[in-house]
Design a binder for these strands. Sequence first.
DNA 1: TTCGCCGGTTTGAACGTTCATACTGTGTGA
DNA 2: TCACACAGTATGAACGTTCAAACCGGCGAA
Lengths: 370, 370
Amino acid sequence: MRKRATLMDVASASGVSRQTVSNVLNAPERVAAPTLDRVRREIERLGFRPHTAARALRRRRAAALGIAVGSPADRRLGNVLDPFLYELTVAARERDVHVVTFSAASAGDPMDQYEHLLGVQAVDGFLITDTRRDDPRPAWLRSRGVPFASFGRMWDEPGSTSWVDVDGSAGVAAGVRHRVAQGYRSVGFLGWPAGSPVGDDRRAGWLAAAVELGVHRAGCDASAPQDVNAAAEAAAPLIARLGSGGALICASDLLALGAWTVLRESGLRAGVDVGLVGFDDSDIARSFDLTSVRQPLARIAATMLEMITGAPADDEQPIAAGSRRHPFTESGGVLLEPVVVERGSSRTAPAPSHRPAPASPPHLTNGGTT
Amino acid sequence: MRKRATLMDVASASGVSRQTVSNVLNAPERVAAPTLDRVRREIERLGFRPHTAARALRRRRAAALGIAVGSPADRRLGNVLDPFLYELTVAARERDVHVVTFSAASAGDPMDQYEHLLGVQAVDGFLITDTRRDDPRPAWLRSRGVPFASFGRMWDEPGSTSWVDVDGSAGVAAGVRHRVAQGYRSVGFLGWPAGSPVGDDRRAGWLAAAVELGVHRAGCDASAPQDVNAAAEAAAPLIARLGSGGALICASDLLALGAWTVLRESGLRAGVDVGLVGFDDSDIARSFDLTSVRQPLARIAATMLEMITGAPADDEQPIAAGSRRHPFTESGGVLLEPVVVERGSSRTAPAPSHRPAPASPPHLTNGGTT
DNA sequence: TTCGCCGGTTTGAACGTTCATACTGTGTGA
DNA sequence: TCACACAGTATGAACGTTCAAACCGGCGAA
């Protein structure tokens, strides 16, 4: 428990000046090979690690980013943001940045928290999530020149380049394709009521793919709010229409769970009689063995950090040309494709020799073994 | 976007020395009233906020605590720890401490991450969660004199005082009591297989309360692993035995959900025919309108911070006598009582005039409307 | 009157880095 | 032969705060 070694300790131990040790850490190419070796050995031997605060003070940057956990509305991260925080933390570690949490608690206004963290200079920028229309945060941050990156499109600022999002449309379309490949002969969709950008996007992906692949049937599109019972109600007639051999893609795992309860009560088996696909790969999906569309959270996190730490903090240019390793969209941000995680709720449809979708009211069918 | 004001700026603006300004912030009782006012006005006017890194450097403490988000096993916080992180963040804000996340990712060993954060002196201590038997972390931290507090009993170290936990036994017992008050006439339990300390604790709470209140019936105790389908299987015979007018307390919301599916398939209505209670008040409970036992996460977080920031970091005394505002247990830590959140899955039992628990095999009953 | 004390305030130094610049010696071209 | 560039290293200062100790003036007790 003795005092930690400092730069000076390493310097005198290896017979060089402090600046040389500093260079070994920050600009090794400027140091002669033998010196480099010697100093590195001493660093290792003394267990020297640069002091975060001293570094932050001198460099005038905290090497930390803030992220909101929860809001007054929902005092938690939720199914998507929870694993996202993990991936973010991992990605941050690789870039020698720390992640500092904050909460827009009682105050209501998240900007108060921004103000505080920036005021005490505990963070260099922010990672924002759950963007929505009329979101005041991007404008606020940009106007003050605060670096940030967003998980979620910035709906108000089409030209902005500082966001990463998931191509929900492509994800749902992939879900449709996989189902068709497995032999399901009609693919319906259970989404949220029209009006939410995310929801509309996912529905569009279903519609396009289902039509293109010839598995679109009339009246196989339903809506429900994010609630199991509502989802079950909306799913019942849909499942009745799809019948055995059909598949149902849902805009969220919770909606899929609603459909799952209907299937169970109908005696239909998820993954055998009816294919069922959720979205987000939440723990619900895992608990219920639901096939689900998973967002590439690790890549999202890495890309966001690249945006913040890579781009010069002051100007918001369309990101240094030449390093565009990501599929930039026309509007400026980065859109990543999700992947389908196959589980028990979608195996292979009943043999194609079966009669096509008889559509008997499923709540009357009885749970047998075929 | 001009430079932020420093102590010196405030000092010269208000005609005092830097140290006086520092005192205004850190030891106002040493400053004469008029001076105090004047300096405070200038602080306000200039929008001065002390620089975190400068402070940390000089004070030799980071004013930050580390918390692990996820593990190699589970790359997320989960239903309990997610809202806990929120409460922790709120509580930390009030104490001018920051919460820094880290992940025991690939490395496997969480101690590597401790080592790193302590090495660069980015945190002063840690908040540990998910303690288990043979947990190496407490001993490791203690041996190095690193401050920490644990959410979860330290099973290996009975004398330790640095933990906070929930009295699961009391929580389950409260669940039983409420059900009895509502008129349910027999109360069963669906828990995890014996052997886990948390699970055994919760079962003990049920047993004691059920026996005491005379609602204990033979064979109304079942076990299943943390899995919906397994829970459903285990719950089916249990529900058959309890019958209408009975209640079922579960060791987790997921187990309760398994029971819920059985109820639905049996045509029994949760909250009318059978009372159903989960544990943790997770989003599953909210989604399914499940009564659940909620852990007092805000108090847990606050208590943990008190332990870390309040107690002198070097010695591990039984916490300063005189300030014991918490119900300390004989073993040293703090045990807090959870509360029952009443929802639809447990309203009032069928009128006591009903015949008691007919126990027909529920998977044969048909879903009707009574 | 003198001394010590005390509330209130100031001064010098230090925390551990990195920036900006200066220094040193060797080789290179004129 | 000399100026010059250049790779490699060293020096002084600064980042913004708090610690430790000194200072200062007035007041009460000896």
